[in-house]
Design a protein around this nucleic acid. Structure first.
Lengths: 235, 235
DNA sequence: CTCTCCTCGATTGAATACAATCGCAGAACC
DNA sequence: GGTTCTGCGATTGTATTCAATCGAGGAGAG
């Protein structure tokens, strides 16, 4: 009947997976460090079985590396891949945005929008509002999480599970790279989301793709400016 | 001491994962069909635990969908995503090819190529030879598997685990889409691999990227010609 | 006859228990 | 003194076991 623990034990294993991934991305688990199943199990209050499943998923996503009988280690942050990852992400995200726009138009062309679509769309409204509140309250620390959820929400809206899976993988890596340049351009970046959402709602594929592409590119420039500043190329 | 079962039980769980994925890609497990853990466990002669881990990894890769207590089903083939997946794959693969070329140049610029690099490079030679033999012997059925291995091998050579993980995910999807257009253009497609390899070995980044991009695009055109032929766009 | 509720079988989720393997420390030998 | 080998501790891999949940089918009320 599940009156207690409202939506927590619905997905106990999923929760462990998300928690570990989150710890990796935001630095609680350092890159290269060794993680033992027993430690994670006791940390999250479950047995080793769900932890093992989570580690396997994370391995598929590229966040941990495992060797038989040798255990798992947190993967190294792909610093060298930054440029390339941004390029790939740009293509994936603009594709997703275009498809989301097309799908939005389809939803209203037909009889009635599917409930699945509405659920995703409503979640995005909540995310955008929460982000705006965070910006207004100067609680910029909340933005990284909301940023990921916004982009994944758009992927959900696009209806393509394949592209969504690719995005989950790559956006996780990018957040990992710089845990969001939140002090530097958090406000502006968040503001761009509204425009993207509007283009999608309007069913405007070209604009949606273009705005998303620009959004990712701004992010890329922000990253380069902050980290790769002086030595753009190595001799 | 592992004298028996030479390289089979080294990675029993990995083997189950690869086997299931292979069955999905090449059609032994139909899209949309329900898969029970017990059935897979008995099929591969292991218990349910490694099967569950494999399913979680496949879920992360987007090949199966799971709902708590409702079991797992093989995901639907992303037919609608074909165009987009080819576009994304083009970017990923050409990026990988350019990086592989750069890395090849670096290997010979320094003191001595790393053993890791050499291992990957040697594997590619074997794959290319095996493919040529298969073509000569008209054993085209072997090409799909070798094709995947060639592309993943180049990814290995690029040295970027992130890009390799992305490629693994997307190339699996594309093989799944058309289990390789082997009768139609298997020979020509395979022939292009040598040229790509040569550009990489020469450390020629632009050529490597361009050739790989063209290679993927040929593949895309082959797919469209064969499946999406008449109705390029829906009214 | 239809709808609702409930029970039961099947299946998944999780925990415990045991076997297999690896890496390291320390002793023995050269 | 250095090298090699051998136990031992720690950790992972797998099987077995039990609890939780879902879905289908039937009984009963309206």
């Amino acid at each position: 009947m599940r009156l207690l623990r409202p939506d927590q034990d619905v997905a106990a294993p999923q929760r462990v997976l998300d928690a570990i991934r989150r710890d990796i991305i935001f630095g609680a688990l350092a890159a290269g460090s060794r993680v033992t199943e027993a430690a994670l199990a006791s940390k999250y209050g479950v047995s080793r079985v769900p932890v093992r499943e989570a580690l396997r998923a994370l391995e598929a996503e590229g966040f941990v590396e495992s060797r038989p009988y040798a255990g798992s280690t947190v993967a190294e942050i792909p610093l060298d891949d930054a440029e390339d990852l941004f390029a790939v992400r740009g293509v994936i995200e603009s594709t997703i945005a275009r498809r989301a726009a097309r799908r939005a138009a389809e939803q209203f062309a037909g009889d009635a929008p599917s409930s699945r679509w509405w659920t995703a769309r409503r979640a995005l409204t909540d995310i955008l509002d929460a982000g705006d509140r965070a910006v207004a309250a100067d609680a910029l620390a909340e933005l990284p999480e909301l940023n990921i959820r916004f982009h994944l929400g758009v992927a959900e809206l696009s209806g393509s599970a394949s592209l969504a899976a690719l995005l989950r993988q790559i956006s996780g890596k990018i957040e990992w790279l710089y845990a969001v340049d939140v002090d530097h351009r958090g406000r502006q970046s968040w503001g761009e989301h509204r425009a993207i959402m509007a283009a999608i709602d309007a069913g405007n594929e070209p604009d949606a793709g273009r705005l998303m592409s620009g959004h990712v590119d701004s992010s890329r420039r922000g990253y380069l400016q902050r980290f790769a500043g002086p030595d753009q190329t190595d001799p």
